[in-house]
């Protein structure tokens, strides 16, 4: 397997894990948090909120400006 295929496989597994965790959380809300719940929790902290918003701004600059 080439290095490119291995790298892409890694990304694919992470994406699949995201989908599985989100679906599981939506099916069993009483036991697992959705990604929205996790963000809600994180964003209640002012510092985390500022860091995430700055990260989001940086992402926009990185994708559309630079």
């Amino acid at each position: 397997m080439s290095a490119r295929s291995s790298t892409l496989l890694g990304w694919g597994l992470l994406a699949a894990a995201f989908v599985v965790l989100e679906v599981r959380a939506r099916v069993r809300r009483e036991r697992f948090a959705t990604v929205g719940d996790a963000l809600d929790r994180l964003l209640r902290n002012g510092v985390a909120r500022a860091i995430l918003l700055l990260g989001w701004l940086w992402l926009g600059w990185h994708l559309f400006v630079r």
Binding site: L21, A33, A38, R41, R44
Partner: peptide, 12 residues
């Protein structure tokens, strides 16, 4: 937001 079941998002 609920407190339970958050750890797996941190791991991911």
């Amino acid at each position: 937001p609920p407190r339970r079941g958050l750890a797996h998002w941190g791991v991911l």
